[in-house]
Design a protein around this nucleic acid. Sequence first.
DNA 1: CACCAAAAGCACACTTTTTGCTTTTACCAC
DNA 2: GTGGTAAAAGCAAAAAGTGTGCTTTTGGTG
Lengths: 180, 180
Amino acid sequence: MQKAVHRAVRELQAGEGELTVPAVAARAGVTPSTIYRRWGTLSQLLSDVALEKLRPETAPVDTGSLKGDLILWLEQYVEEMASAPGRAMIRDILRETLPGNASQCSAFTYGQIEHIHARALDRGELPPPAELLLERVIAPLMYRILFTPAPPTAEEARRLLDEVLTYPLGEGNTDATANK
Amino acid sequence: MQKAVHRAVRELQAGEGELTVPAVAARAGVTPSTIYRRWGTLSQLLSDVALEKLRPETAPVDTGSLKGDLILWLEQYVEEMASAPGRAMIRDILRETLPGNASQCSAFTYGQIEHIHARALDRGELPPPAELLLERVIAPLMYRILFTPAPPTAEEARRLLDEVLTYPLGEGNTDATANK
DNA sequence: CACCAAAAGCACACTTTTTGCTTTTACCAC
DNA sequence: GTGGTAAAAGCAAAAAGTGTGCTTTTGGTG
């Protein structure tokens, strides 16, 4: 049932129909009250759908080197997040008052970066901590996505990444006080 | 009239009452249809109110040095933005589909930093470009505010600032390709 | 098969949202 | 001032969305 509702939401988001609880319910073959009881509000439902779409289904591909892994993964990340539907998803996730879904979303990103990080360590490379990448690459991109009319480009993402890889700098960055 | 409505919203946000269009209308001594015609949705209204509250009313205070100006301003910025009401305001601003208010919000921040920047130049100091501060200090803070349960602290803000001031780095940062 | 609890349906009440039409307001020309 | 006019606000009713008590279905368990 949850699957039918989620699918209905995605269809309405993509296609024409208006995005209301009654419309979603009708499309999913369900009564509105079911949706209200399970999710409470349309916002919460949209937030859940967005989170589901953002959940990574595969580990980042292994290109053989830290830099290659990061560039490839980051390009996909930017393409997904900076697109119009991507921006809408992020806004949907942030709409909720409770930070649950938002922090889950950040945790997905962290996890993917951690994966690349761990792989690099195995190779004997010296990768920057995931926190640093979140802080110096992901955060600026997200800021651009959320607060400026023109979303960031893949080039800008590469520039940010290059800077971190070239100057990992600052004492303060090896501890893990950033988010989790 | 707009003033009465804005005030009603702020009162309801602060105090007890429920935050609905009819409630705001009643409190402002206006009919709901007036609000619907002027703002369209409650979200848009909340977004406008939040933007208004975020608009800086004074220039950053002059402490006599670049670093002092930045630290003082940043502390106030974090205090305002990382607080519960601050986070709510930011979410209200981002709720809207059109990036207008969000980019205006970013422009306010940029303007304040620019002000400090210009003042530092006058003193003969060598301040980092405002874009760099946005990218390396504001963006990570905003990321923490939006995506993690525990908001950033003043200490973390100072750490980010210190890193930028100590290592302004990278060729790519003197141009102004970032946002505006 | 009978039972039970969780989930969904159904009907209805209540609230919010939207709209057509009227009235007020503010401004400008005369 | 007076009259004209366009934008904004009020009003009232219809439409749409939201929430809730109660019944029915479903799926698992003894």
